[in-house]
Design a protein around this nucleic acid. Sequence first.
RNA 1: GGGGCUGUAGCUCAAUUGGGAGAGCGCCUCCCUUGCACGGAGGAGGUCAGGGGUUCGAAUCCCCUCAGCUCCA
Length: 889
Amino acid sequence: MTSDEIREVFLSFFEQKGHRVIPSSSLIPHRDTSLLLTTAGMVQIKPYFLGLQKPPGPRLASCQKCFRTTDIDSVGNSKHLTLFEMLGNFSVGDYFKEEAISWAWEFVIEYLKLPGERLWISVYLDDDAAFACWRQVGVPAERILRFGEEDNFWGPTGDSGPCGPCSEIHYDHGEEFGCGRPECKPNCECGRFSEIWNLVFTQYNQTTDGKRIPLPKPNINTGMGLERTAAAVQGKPSCYETDIFLPLIERVTQLAGKGYGEDKDIDRAIRIVVEHSRGIAFLIADGVLPSNEGRGYVLRRILRRASLFGKRLGLDRPFLSEITTATVSRMNQVYPELIVNRAMIDQITKAEEEKFIGTLETGLTLVEELIEETMSQGERSLPSEQVFRLYDTHGFPAELTAEIARERGLVIDLAGFEGEMKKQQERARATQKKAIQYLAGTIKGTASVTGNLKVDRMEFIGYETTACRGEIVKIIVEEQDVTSVSKGSEVNIILNKTPFYGEMGGQVGDTGKISSQRGEVAITSTTRSPSDVIIHHGKVVKGSISTGDEVEAKIDVDRRLDIARNHTATHLLQYALREILGVHVYQRGSSVEPAGFRFDFSHLATVSESQLSEIQGLVNEKIRQNLPVKSKLVPYDQAKAEEAIALFEEKYGETVRVVEIGEPALSTELCGGTHVKSTGEIGFFIMMSEASIGTGLHRIEAVTGRTAEAVAERNSATLKSIARELKTVPDEVHGKVGVLVNELESAHKHSLWLERELSRKITESLISQVKQAGGITFLSARVPPLTKSVLREMGDILRSKLKSAVIVLATVYNDNPSFLAMVTPDLVARGFYANDIIKKVAKVAGGSGGGKSEMAQAGGKDATRLDEALDSVESIIAEKTSSPVKKED
RNA sequence: GGGGCUGUAGCUCAAUUGGGAGAGCGCCUCCCUUGCACGGAGGAGGUCAGGGGUUCGAAUCCCCUCAGCUCCA
């Protein structure tokens, strides 16, 4: 049985048992900031279990792609994977243990045809009910083992929430794969037993004080690892020998010219390469891009690990994209997002791998330096802080450092390195804890109001209208439900019916007012609870309001129209980007506000000026064509079949709203936002900026409608005023500025030339002004205003002409006195230091300064005492010659 | 989210306690030569990432912002 068949048979089996099959959700969890990546099939079911959302049915089944980073370092042995597929059936308050167990057994025996005698069962210590169920389906008592919390109790995630005992099916691969110890049984560390299916019986809700309260309607949540199951079904010792990995392994062995199954270390490297390559392909397909934090960093880490182990196989050039390509062709039937994003997967992988090779190269020179230094000091061991610095700051793996060191007869202090690593982890954890506490605090504040907020009747009618009559269902003030509130209070209001759009999909919420006969509330923002209830935030400005009041809800229509213009423009922009740059362009986020919008999209190359102007032109052309904008509700599957563009991180219900522009549609997007009726209403579109905001990610900021008009107006006003200033007309401004810049440049050169001419003349006259003091030739003179550099040039000339002298020049430049002192080398040797002299001189004029012994500069504050300062030079030198001179060696 | 490092000519990088912005490669012009990274002379090219502060004076010290690299979560 192939893995594809297992997947198919599983889903159709549970479909027969009344389950609704739901598609795999993205690896990026939707609206769940607590999770980096989707780690189990349960993730997308969680809101149903928590009662936050209505499930499409009480019985659900899925095959979910999952990604776990917890045992990334164990990848390569027989069991652990980062990316895997999890088959699962779920009961949302419907069936329980008995059905879950009997169906699981039926499936593995009848459908997967696994030999019963190779299967072992584990149950939670006191879960006699589960034990009995297993006995009933015919599992002998001696193959049902009891384990404690560690192995057979699931949850809660965090300190409270749903949890319960679980029961697992283990497959015995056979004694030959085991450790051989007599006590070897399921959950043994050796590779003999493989846990293939975990059935979780969520029957308790754990409170923060540790009490477990039975749930009125317990849930079932199961997870069967497809890869492990395939290994069992196909009689292979590990998932790597199944049809899932073999094609990929074949590709690697082809490229590396190494055989699989000949050498333990080589096998491990091959496994890591293929395993991580799958992860790379799937992560990129779901919109993750390499980065130095979050999900992007997970991607970068596995990519680098794969590249390193590839090196070990002798693969020196970039090769990973070959394996990700093989992954795409192996898996795209089931996961079409792979084929859709294949260009992105290929290019990102190549670019990132090349970048890593670059990092390794610079690291290599640093390692060489470190080795040289260590050897020159006669040490044999590379200092661990330095090895850690190479890794921490420059990303150079310690194993590689060790390897290179070994070739040169050196060792590294591995224990010290691990210590440094521990410290770093502790630092991060400590701050992480604080961040979580902080987060918990803020969420708690609103969670009590909105987290589990359930409202039976609430209708959004803002697509059709901008005002309506409704009734106040709930009033929340500072996290407390209240029945009435009066003037001056900040409130959150929930209506049974509202035209207010709650912030979602990048579009900001509406503002406006809610008024009754007795009072009025100014609504300043509108948001949405996790359970999709629209919450109006505002302040009571008149009278008072109470729950049950009949009210009129009216949004700020002009503002809404501004937002709608911008939102429809994002769709047109995405269309234009795909036309001009290519179909690989996808929206990666947006922010739609009344004043303008931001649009992030995936694209690898830089966008040229001419492309930008083409894009802007195309959007404006479509605006002028005044195309109709229509929305409709369609079943999810239909929308998918029609290839409506969906935002990767969004999750959509059974029916989805599709927004189409034009007839036939040139843009079709799944979207819940508010739009204009036809593109002409947008009026005008101007791109304000385009920039790369990370690898493969770009951001465009743009404005439409009246903001665009204002921008155009402002630009033209600016241009006109510049033209006026330049005494010309706007069309001539460009040429005129060019001329002016040239003129300015030559004027600068000319004035520099004049200054030099002047300084040369002065220099000659200055030479005749030299004096003597204590046998030392010196010159102290005031010169006309000169720039610092010309003053210095003057000093240089004087110094070379006078051969042996102390020179002090002073000038007033921009009202500030400044001094320059120069001393010829022979006098420096005799103890005349320019920096000492300048300090004394400048002090007279209330300034200070410093420099080097041959040349020093200073500034003063009192320009009137400049001459007095210059006069002091003679006495300074005289003093120096009369006192005994310390000779320098 | 928290650390570390970096940002100077088109590229790779220098610049001692704060005191004169440089080298190599590349580019342009000329000369000498014509096989290899020829050789020689001259030249252009810089908001020292950006902003603020300290100072007579900041590439250098302090603060903020931005960008890149890197590690941890």
